[in-house]
């Protein structure tokens, strides 16, 4: 992180989904995030906080409502056309959450993994086959599995197929959308280790979206916490996890059960009341004010901005307690 070069920069990235009668879902609302080269940024938050939408908007799978995304300093189009997809496919890719529904059941593994190459590389079909075979063995699958269909594989194997598909064009930046949450504990470790190894060997930059806080702390360099479409806090993963600043981060991490009975017996009840509010009617003020144990009058009128902490300039918190 010494000479960090920004790779992907989102500036006030916004994605609204329209509803009838002029209302809209504020899925992602003005998110500023800089992801540096060869960095893993973990993105955590409750379901409905806009993590996946942010990831998809960032790499152009969804058109942006507002804001910009810059890749190596060059602004990307607001809405991708076929040529944009063709160009960006070689630089940005995505690994999806559900290994059961993200693979086409009527395509063989060879067709699934090789589709990107076929469309964008112009390799001959025999070269293509060799590349697919080498990628299958690289993600820990037998190259002989090429002619099989997705239903013949277990969840962990399918996720490996998804990883091979995303990485075969050798992108620089990959959005991993909950790549392990559908998998069993023992298999999760296999997939996480594979991702780490590929990150090392290919020099990948990852946005790792997950709700498993322990795993995000483990794999990420920096951790970003999202709440209701906006970032609440971002900083080095270790610091954010062990000394959270934003009241929401604090509660989120305190709710995370640790696999250690003694720690759990000492745990104070930190249960948060209420649930994540609707992202449709968002008023002024802090989004978390309604559930926050420390909320002040100011929180209900003035939206806090994501600002660096005075004593820790690499940590950013959007909370009036710190400004």
């Amino acid at each position: 992180m010494s000479k960090a070069i920004p790779l992907v920069v989102s500036d006030k990235l916004t994605k609204f989904f329209p509803l009838p009668r002029g209302k809209k879902v504020h899925a992602v609302d003005g998110v500023d995030l800089t992801i540096h080269e060869r960095e893993i940024v973990g993105l955590v938050g409750e379901s409905g906080s806009g993590k996946t939408t942010f990831g998809k908007t960032l790499i152009g799978l969804l058109p942006k409502t507002d804001g910009t995304v810059k890749y190596r300093g060059k602004a990307l189009p607001q809405k991708y056309g076929p040529a944009d997809f063709k160009r960006q496919a070689k630089t940005m890719q995505m690994i999806f959450q559900d290994p059961y529904s993200s693979l086409n059941p009527r395509m063989t593994v060879e067709e699934i993994v090789g589709e990107g190459l076929k469309l964008y590389s112009g390799q001959s079909s025999s070269d293509l086959r060799d590349t697919v075979a080498s990628w299958l063995s690289r993600v820990g699958l037998e190259p002989d599995y090429m002619s099989r269909y997705p239903h013949e594989f277990s969840g962990g194997q399918r996720q490996r197929i998804g990883i091979a598909r995303a990485l075969i064009l050798e992108p620089e930046f990959v959005v991993c959308d909950e790549p392990i949450s559908a998998l069993d504990v023992s298999v999760q470790a296999q997939v996480v280790n594979l991702l780490e190894e590929l990150k090392q060997s290919m020099g990948l930059t990852l946005l790792f979206i997950a709700h498993d806080l322990s795993m995000v702390r483990y794999i990420s360099d920096r951790m970003a916490v999202m709440y209701l479409g906006a970032l609440a806090e971002i900083g080095p993963a270790h610091d954010v996890f062990f000394s959270p600043k934003h009241p929401y981060t604090e509660i989120l991490i305190a709710s995370n059960p640790e696999p250690d009975p003694e720690l759990e017996r000492k745990r104070l009840s930190t249960t948060i009341t209420g649930e994540i509010p609707s992202p449709v009617d968002i008023g002024a003020g802090c989004r978390f004010a309604g559930r926050c144990p420390h909320s002040m009058d100011r929180c209900r009128v003035e939206t806090p901005l994501l600002k660096p902490l005075a004593d820790q300039p690499d940590r950013y918190v959007a909370c009036h307690l710190y400004n």
Partner: peptide, 16 residues
Amino acid sequence: AMPSNDPSARRSLIPI
């Protein structure tokens, strides 16, 4: 196979 949240330990995951 699970990450431990011991702040002092940085160990890698051992999958089954």
